[in-house]
Design a protein around this nucleic acid. Structure first.
Lengths: 115, 115
DNA sequence: CCCAACCGTTTCGGAGCCGATTTAGTCTAA
DNA sequence: TTAGACTAAATCGGCTCCGAAACGGTTGGG
């Protein structure tokens, strides 16, 4: 995939504009980073691990999991082999959300390549 | 530019992760949308126009201009032909910021195309 | 001349997120 | 068995942002 600076920014502009406009559900950059990490990288995903990866505090991860859990984009599960850990797992709803995001990105990317 | 769903999400993941980690300067999705609109679309840009485009309230735009003005990413200018209007204009600093964002996107995109 | 319409900003109460610290539960090694 | 290490979650005060409504300044038509 080759991309020139102006094309890259236009792509970013269109997609960000889309996500801002359809206000439901509005995820912060941090929340989106968590969601994408859980769905794209290999498990297991713990609070501590995510905090280290994003370089933010653990409570920030816990709160993000709370809000995203309410929206059913992600779910918690106790690690039965070590009950101190919480494993972050995917949901059907979260898959749908990211699938739609991917569709948006692809659609916008094609618009720019054709122009 | 052709892009498969998984590649699109990986690209988004990497870039979002980059922006979350280097916390300075941290722009919300809304602020980034404003910044990109001002730099990519043809002027003039007014508060009212930006609010309509992003589908958010006018005070939200005013506040975003305050914070981004402090960071010297954007500047206000009174419209001399109609002093009710405020024109949003670009700055050198803002150009640099977006240029670096474009570099990040392009670098990540190339990584994925080579893999 | 004036008043209605328009502009961006400010005020207001409410909601959400922040990091640091504390709490409660679990595991492990001596 | 027990003390200490380690986990995630709960608490705390402080900060930022939110939209609705109110506000002052500007414009243009009647």
């Amino acid at each position: 995939m080759e991309l020139k600076p102006l094309e890259a920014l236009k792509l970013w502009h269109d997609v960000v504009l889309d996500t801002v406009r359809r206000d439901v559900p509005d995820l912060s950059a941090r929340q989106l980073a968590i969601l994408l990490t859980v769905y794209l990288e290999s498990p297991p995903h713990t609070v501590r691990g995510l905090a280290a990866k994003l370089k933010v505090s653990k409570p920030a991860i816990t709160r993000a999991l709370d809000t995203m859990g309410q929206k059913d984009l992600l779910k918690r599960k106790r690690d039965e082999t070590d009950k101190r850990n919480v494993l972050v797992q995917r949901t059907v709803n979260g898959s749908v959300y990211l699938s739609e995001l991917a569709d948006t990105i692809i659609a916008r990317a094609q618009e720019h390549s054709s122009s």
